[in-house]
């Protein structure tokens, strides 16, 4: 009796580009690189802050430059992608609540919008009244 030869297909190198669900997953996961970049940006800015006014003013000048603004725009998009996809999957990480999953997602996104609005409002107050 001849030996049965099973055939193992290799996994496609770019499997994550093959359907909308995989692409959405990879976009969600890849947003983390820009979130990491933002954390490093803040750490660097704090370091300049610790070095005194002249160093920090130089940092502020760079922040207003076109490359810096473009980078932050990308990081903003990454934060939004992160927030939306975070609450899309959040219902799957919780036991059943009786609420429809869509309600949890939309509630989370609303909380995120309010949270970010609050941060901006806080900054306006900090700059205007303090």
């Amino acid at each position: 009796m001849s030996e049965i030869r099973i055939y193992r297909r290799p996994m496609a190198a770019r499997w994550w580009a093959r359907n909308p669900t995989y692409r959405r997953y990879m976009a969600r996961e890849a947003s983390s690189f820009l979130l990491f970049a933002y954390a490093l940006t803040l750490i660097y800015g704090l370091w300049r802050l610790g070095q005194g006014q002249a160093a920090y003013d130089g940092w502020l000048t760079w922040l207003a430059s076109t490359p810096a603004l473009l980078l932050h725009l990308l990081m903003l998009i990454a934060m939004v992608v992160h927030a939306v996809t975070w609450f899309e999957v959040a219902p799957k990480t919780m036991p059943k609540t009786g609420l429809p999953e869509r309600a949890i997602t939309l509630g989370g996104i609303a909380a995120a919008a309010l949270g970010s609005l609050f941060v901006v409002a806080l900054a306006i107050w900090w700059g205007a009244w303090r």
Binding site: Y25, P91, K92, T93
Partner: peptide, 26 residues
């Protein structure tokens, strides 16, 4: 599991394996 979620999309019986697995991470 990294919560790709495609499993729950293709399940013909709406079992929602992604939910079954991920509520057990906590």
């Amino acid at each position: 599991c990294t919560l790709v979620g495609y499993c729950s999309q293709v399940c013909p019986k709406a079992v929602d394996p992604a939910h079954a697995i991920n509520q057990n991470k906590a």
